[in-house]
Each structure stands twice: as structure tokens, then as C-alpha cells.
Amino acid sequence: MRELFPAKQVWGFVLSLALTAAALLVYFFNMSRATGMTIFIVTAFIQAFVQLVVFMHARETDDSKSIFATLYYAIFIALITVFGTLLCMIWGWKY
């Protein structure tokens, strides 16, 4: 029975619960917007990374370079799209 619950997965689970709780702190305590957003960004990305490495085994084959290249590329372009769009649709708008 024990071998069905490997320590790595269990720790991953506990960690992701803890990170969710950390993000919840922003909800329960009054924080400045900058602090809140920082906590959100940090917890969300760490949690995503935990999923990738612990649960999704992204590191285990010799394709892992290709896999991580794809992921980083995707995340980078997604961020460019998000911030580029906000820049020209909202922040850089002149009335």
C-alpha cells in the first residue's frame, strides 16, 4: 500500500495546497494591489512548475529539452500577447 503513495507526489500535493493557501491570504487580508499581484504571480507560476516537474514528468526523457523549449516559448509568447495587448488596448490609449 505504501508504495502506491510515493513521497514525491505527496509532497507535490501538499506544496500545491500550501501555495493555494498562500494566494488566499491576499483575499483574507487587506494588502496593497502591488503586493497582492506579486503574491498571485509568484504562487501561480511556482504551482504550475510543480505540476510540470512532479506530476507531468517533464524532465524524465531525452526529449525534455524540446519539451521545455516548447513550454518556455509558449509562455514567453503568451506573456508578450497579454502585455502587448494591454499596452496598446488599455495602457497606451490616449483620449
Binding site: 488596448m89 488599455i90 495602457w91 497606451g92 490609449w93 490616449k94 483620449y95
Partner: peptide, 23 residues
């Protein structure tokens, strides 16, 4: 339609300095 649709706080800090000399 000269009202602001977007989030006001983020809009203004960018726009203010531009308004000064152009606007």
C-alpha cells in the same frame, strides 16, 4: 463617447504626462 471604459487607475498614470504637453 468621451468616457473611460478601461480601468481608470492604470489609464491615468500613463496618460497624465502625455496630456501635459499634447493635450
Amino acid at each position: 463617447p468621451e468616457h473611460h471604459h478601461g480601468s481608470k487607475d492604470s489609464n491615468e498614470d500613463v496618460n497624465d504626462e502625455y496630456m501635459e504637453h499634447d493635450h
